[in-house]
């Protein structure tokens, strides 16, 4: 085969391969997604994060506004220290509360933000004052059983476990 035609084919092959890689990176992967926009960091301390993982979404009103960027164990307070990156487009009041929620019965866990009423907004490096831990199924079942055993009145005290009896 003539050399120029051969070069053309090989060049087209290389370009095709690189385009495939770019498609994988930007369309399939998350390189083009959230990381491009500007973010700010906020922290939350939780008693129990359950199955929360790095890169889990942070949602408010069901809309993804950021992602979990780091999870550490705090040696002083013995709590979980969770770092989140929120999009600069979404500002929240200072008294916003964060809760670890589960999508669906056995779905992935995410952080849900409930906006407060403060005038000032959360800034880079701020910390959520109000946090709510993940619900651990075993504890709920235990609570439900315990309240059942301790009589009729106990049922009303377990606000969360009441409707999840085994």
């Amino acid at each position: 085969m003539e050399r120029t035609t051969l070069d053309m084919w090989v060049g087209a092959f290389m370009v095709g391969g690189l385009i495939a890689l770019l498609i994988l990176a930007f369309k399939v992967g998350n390189l083009g997604g959230y990381d491009g926009s500007k973010t700010y960091r906020v922290y939350g301390e939780f008693d129990n994060i359950g199955g929360l993982k790095i890169k889990a979404p942070v949602k408010s009103a069901g809309v993804v506004v950021g992602r979990v960027s780091g999870i550490q164990f705090d040696n002083k307070t013995f709590r979980a220290h969770v770092e989140m990156r929120l999009s600069q487009n979404n500002l929240f009041p200072k008294d916003t509360s964060a809760a670890i929620l589960t999508s669906g019965l056995l779905g992935e866990q995410y952080i849900g933000l409930e906006a407060g009423g403060d005038e000032a907004n959360l800034k880079n490096g701020d910390k959520f004052k109000l946090t709510q831990s993940a619900m651990v199924l075993e504890q709920l079942i235990g609570q439900a059983l315990f309240s059942k055993a301790s009589g009729e009145g106990g049922d009303k005290n377990t606000a969360q476990g009441g409707n999840k009896k085994p």
Binding site: G17, I19, A20, L21, I23, L24, V28
Partner: peptide
């Protein structure tokens, strides 16, 4: 050189 490009194309076309 060819192998990674072919694998990338395989994955992209597969998706």
């Amino acid at each position: 050189t060819s192998m990674p490009l072919l694998a990338a194309m395989f994955s992209a076309v597969g998706v």
